[in-house]
């Protein structure tokens, strides 16, 4: 990332000013996160204390204990990981093929299709839950992880296809011609040449599907009805939202627990994400 030999080197004071502001902005952006973690370790009753101190003198892990001590918490965590990974992998593969089709070929309805892909995202999800529910019931998927995986694949595909278009476009056509001259079959080109080239883009789009799947409440509570052992992490968070007596310490601790795996995922793919997304800009 640093090897670009980069653009105009700003003069020193200007760069320092830029870096200082970057750090200040980072602190501002991170402050609510800090407050979340802080609220999670505060002793009961201190979250709402008139002093609003940005620290606590008696940190406690009680809230985390309430979160982690929940029945089957590990199970929920595992389910979330399985669902998120399945969605990420499946939607990446399907989107890759679709993006290749709409970028490398011209055919009727191409533009229409691209816009159609977006349509479902424009409708409130609550409205789609009912037809989806009956679909899942008739397909016998209710109360299985499939009832979460399938809709999430569908909802992450449109965005993934739109993003991947740019990456596929960026691969020079000459490469395909050369491959053909070498006698490579179309599928060989697709999987052995094109696929690795757009892999960074796939990683980039997978971040989006990962987050939306990981944080989903609605499908998780609508399609996993009778088998709580198939529940996902957000259900462990919802326990703390009791209408009249919410447990904010528990909410914050559960959210912290939920956010950490996403951050880990980010850190792992961060380099690829940044280098990968760049491909989308090319024609």
């Amino acid at each position: 990332m640093n090897s670009t030999g980069f653009r105009r080197r700003p003069r020193r004071p200007r760069r320092l000013a830029a870096e200082a502001s970057a750090l200040v902005i980072a602190a501002v952006v991170a402050f609510p996160l800090y407050w979340m973690v802080l609220s999670a370790v505060r002793p009961a009753g201190e979250i709402e204390s008139a002093e609003a101190r940005p620290w606590t003198l008696a940190p406690t892990l009680d809230s985390f204990r309430r979160v982690l001590g929940q029945q089957e918490f590990g199970r929920y965590f595992l389910n979330s990981v399985v669902v998120a990974c399945a969605v990420v992998i499946a939607s990446a593969l399907i989107a890759f093929l679709a993006a290749t089709a709409v970028t490398r070929f011209r055919f009727r309805f191409r533009t229409t299709l691209l816009i159609m892909f977006l349509i479902a995202q424009m409708v409130p999800v609550e409205a789609l839950t009912i037809p989806l529910f009956f679909l899942m019931r008739d397909a016998g998927q209710l109360n299985t992880l499939g009832a979460l995986i399938l809709p999430h694949i569908a909802f992450s595909l449109p965005f993934a296809i739109w993003m991947l278009r740019g990456f596929v476009k960026a691969v020079p056509e000459s490469l395909e011609e050369a491959a053909q001259l070498d006698g490579a079959s179309r599928s060989r080109f697709l999987w052995q040449i094109l696929f690795p080239l757009v892999l960074p883009g796939l990683v980039a789009t997978s971040v989006f599907s990962f987050i939306s799947t990981w944080n989903d409440f609605l499908f998780a509570k609508s399609f996993i009805i009778s088998d709580t052992s198939r529940s996902t992490l957000p259900m462990a968070l919802l326990v703390f939202f009791k209408p009249e007596e919410p447990d904010w310490g528990g909410v914050m601790a559960a959210s912290t627990v939920m956010t950490i795996p996403v951050l880990v995922f980010f850190v792992l793919v961060q380099r690829r994400l940044v280098s990968g997304l760049g491909g989308a800009v090319k024609e």
């Binding site: 529910f133 009956f134 109360n143 509570k221 609508s222 009805i225 009778s226 919802l238």
Partner: peptide, 24 residues
């Protein structure tokens, strides 16, 4: 016995009415 979060009751109950197989 299954313990469900109060916050999820609306969706779950509707779902249970719609799918007697999953219903308690």
């Amino acid at each position: 016995v299954e313990y469900i979060p109060v916050e999820t009751r609306a969706e779950r109950m509707k779902a249970a009415f719609n799918d007697p197989k999953s219903a308690p």
